[in-house]
């Protein structure tokens, strides 16, 4: 199988934060009036600073927060996310994922693949090739967990195949 490759894009690594941490961070910042100092936040929550940075950076990659100097503030989109119900949050997250080059690239790759699915190894090879300095396993796990939450990518752990999650996003709530 040799799908025609799009021009090589600039793939970016992702901050290895869990979706739950990102959402929790947004809610905490919202509770502080949509803006807070990062050091103060980490110390008040007794949260390891490195983990706080990862969650903040992840929110920034998704355009849900910005970090001028040591401040964290919610973007208009971040405020909309906090106010939204769980399903609307997922739709918003889905849209944001598509704007991230790494996800856009993988989604495109999958769209060209037969049945819109590819073995996990092919995705991992692709990531390793583009981002040789990154731990591929962590990157892959992050991509799958964000992708599943945003219902952009699916992963079948029995077949070890990644696929484009077309049904759930196209037809809300009508999964088999």
């Amino acid at each position: 199988m040799k799908a025609e490759r799009p021009p090589r894009p600039h793939l970016e690594p992702l901050p290895y934060a869990q979706v739950g941490e990102i959402v929790g961070l947004l809610e905490v910042v919202h509770d502080q009036g949509d803006r807070t100092n990062l050091f103060a936040l980490a110390s008040r929550l007794r949260l390891e600073f490195g983990l706080a940075i990862l969650a903040v950076k992840a929110a920034e990659v998704l355009d849900l927060a910005e970090t001028p100097r040591q401040e964290v503030l919610l973007t208009p989109l971040g405020r909309a996310f906090v106010a939204a119900d769980p399903n609307e949050r997922k739709r918003l997250f889905h849209r944001q994922l598509r704007a991230i080059p790494t996800f856009a690239y993988l989604a495109d790759m999958l769209r060209r693949a037969p049945g819109m699915r590819l073995p996990a190894e092919i995705i991992e090879e692709e990531l390793a090739m583009h981002l040789p300095g990154e731990p591929t396993e962590s990157l892959f796990e992050t991509i799958i967990s964000w992708g599943r939450y945003g219902e952009l990518l699916g992963y079948d752990p029995d077949a070890r195949e990644v696929y484009l999650d077309v049904e759930s996003t196209a037809t809300e709530g009508a999964r088999p």
Partner: peptide, 15 residues
């Protein structure tokens, strides 16, 4: 949604 076929070991604590 999106996690239906995942096994527990693939999930974060929150999930």
């Amino acid at each position: 949604e999106g996690f239906e076929e995942a096994y527990p070991k693939e999930l974060s604590g929150g999930m």
